[in-house]
């Protein structure tokens, strides 16, 4: 499938993000450009305050840029209003957060079903059951988040991220709240599912070891990409 590989699923051109602070404004992202091809895995690394989480937010359509263009699977994110971006997220995007962000009012299974239901998928429950089995929690489907350990909660979050078969998965420090043993398992699970679903993965992390599992590593500092290491030579 080389032609698929060559297609850019994320295109970022001259992206700038400014925020107003007190009397002046702060440029968090300073003219960022890069592309990501379909099915690739890419890690964004950098020190705290380098702008990596802001970049992730913009790529996922959680926020809008001050200037520049972002295309997500062909859709011009920078031209969409908030509701359109929300609709796009429910169709094409999955998320994994450092703090899991499960809804405490829902059971594990219900949490997994949630995005599918929001996207209007009919067999949400069936899909959720398949996924909960894959992440090894089928025995605990009716447990509430506060009855699960951190590692288990993140497994639920991973299953939830894949239920809509998203084209792109955004993960923000997915192992940040876990011990190394659990972190490794979670990372493994995430990459396995990613491969299985042919999902494009955008991962933000401090953890260079985790980043090195990805095909590309973008290093950020002070709102700029200062290094781009690619496993394949055909990446720009």
């Amino acid at each position: 499938m080389p032609e698929v590989k060559n297609e850019n699923i994320i295109i970022v051109k001259n992206l700038i993000k400014r925020v107003n602070i007190n009397n002046g404004h702060l440029e968090i992202l300073k003219s960022i450009s890069f592309n990501v091809k379909r099915g690739e895995t890419i890690a964004i690394v950098g020190a705290s305050g380098s702008g990596k989480s802001t970049l992730l937010g913009l790529l996922a359509g959680l926020d809008s840029p001050t200037q520049g263009e972002i295309y997500l699977d062909g859709a011009p994110l920078h031209q969409l209003d908030e509701e359109q971006r929300t609709a796009l997220r429910s169709q094409k995007v999955g998320f994994i957060f450092q703090s899991f962000l499960l809804l405490p009012s829902l059971t594990a299974l219900e949490n997994i079903m949630l995005p599918a239901q929001l996207a209007g998928i009919d067999n949400a429950e069936q899909l959720a059951q398949q996924l909960i089995e894959k992440v090894g929690l089928s025995e605990r489907f009716d447990h509430y988040p506060n009855q699960l350990s951190g590692g288990e909660q993140q497994r639920v979050a991973i299953a939830r991220a894949f239920i809509t078969k998203p084209k792109i998965l955004f993960a923000d420090e997915p192992t940040g709240n876990l011990d190394s043993g659990n972190g490794d398992k979670i990372a493994q699970l995430m990459f396995d599912l990613n491969r299985e679903h042919h999902t494009t993965l955008v991962l933000v992390t401090h953890d260079l070891q985790l980043a090195n599992h990805c095909q590309h590593v973008l290093t950020m500092a002070a709102g700029l990409i200062i290094e781009h290491v690619a496993e394949y030579s055909d990446v720009v």
Binding site: A60, E83, T86, S90, L101
Partner: peptide
Amino acid sequence: QDLVILRTLGASKK
């Protein structure tokens, strides 16, 4: 917190 999760997962404002 609930709103954050739901919004991120694509729940509309409405």
